[in-house]
């Protein structure tokens, strides 16, 4: 069953047709990757799905519900979470607090309950803290729990962002270039991590440049070029696809 279904999605930036009539679907429990050269519209497509940008046309169905044009928070509460290519953590807050924010959609104390410090919220706060700690432990960064996030290394920050996204307990996780800025060892670790995330029953859709990572972990791959989908297939088939090879390596001269 398709968890996410994208039909004829379009997005213009002025005269630029950044996403051109793209359709594909992501089945529950799979890891799907979107690849393509720079400027192919991968991140734009991501922003259309997560609600950071409204589409110019087309539909996005998540759990059989139309979510195109929704605000990001509306999409997040429906069970979609994301990370960013250039990590967006909450500065001025500790690693633990960042992950605790991931529990926002799983808790409910509002303004009144907060201001009046109602006893039931104490229990909820304890649970938020405990759960957040569990997610830090999952990424083996619980020792940095009380450190302000800008003091962490790049890799650690990425781990915090992952933990925060997972703490929302999403059905679908969008990863925007999770291996960007990491060396080959860290990239391999990220690959294992993504597989582990899938094993927890979370569907993953990722944008990635690193071909070895994509070929290793993906179940299916969508290839974008100049905003258009040019191929969608299994990794092995994509490697043999002549059109894909030509856009990545250039065309052979006759």
């Amino acid at each position: 069953m398709a968890l996410l279904e994208i039909n004829n999605l379009n997005r213009y930036f002025g005269g630029l047709h950044a996403v051109n009539d793209v359709s594909f679907s992501v089945d529950e429990g799979m890891i799907k990757a979107i690849i393509g050269p720079n400027g192919a519209g991968k991140t734009t497509l991501f922003n259309l799905i997560s609600g950071n940008l409204p589409p110019s046309g087309g539909t996005v169905l998540f759990k059989d519900e139309h979510i195109e044009g929704f605000q990001p928070y509306q999409i997040a509460v429906r069970g979609m979470s994301r990370t960013y290519q250039n990590i967006k953590l909450f500065h001025g807050m500790t690693a633990l607090e960042n992950v605790m924010l991931g529990r926002h959609v799983q808790s409910r104390a509002g303004f009144m309950a907060g201001m009046l410090n109602l006893p039931w919220t104490w229990h909820e706060e304890r649970q938020i803290r405990q759960k957040a700690m569990e997610f830090l432990e999952l990424f083996e960064i619980s020792e940095f729990a009380d450190i302000e996030v800008t003091n962490l290394s790049f890799g650690q920050q990425r781990a915090v962002e992952f933990a925060r996204a997972l703490a929302t307990e999403p059905k679908l996780l969008l990863l925007d270039e999770p291996a960007a800025g990491l060396n080959i060892y860290e990239t391999a670790e990220i690959g294992q991590l993504i597989s582990r995330i899938r094993d927890r029953g979370i569907t993953v859709l990722l944008v990635e440049h690193d071909m070895s990572l994509v070929m290793d972990i993906s179940d299916e791959i969508v290839v974008l070029s100049f905003g258009e989908k040019i191929a969608e297939d299994l990794p092995a088939a994509i490697q043999q696809n002549e059109e894909v090879i030509s856009i990545y390596l250039g065309e052979e001269e006759d």
């Binding site: 997040a76 607090e97 924010l101 926002h104």
Partner: peptide, 15 residues
């Protein structure tokens, strides 16, 4: 405080 830190990310966290 998260809105103060990054409004975009706060929104994506369901806030």
């Amino acid at each position: 405080r998260s809105i103060h830190g990054s409004e975009e990310a706060a929104n994506a966290m369901g806030i």
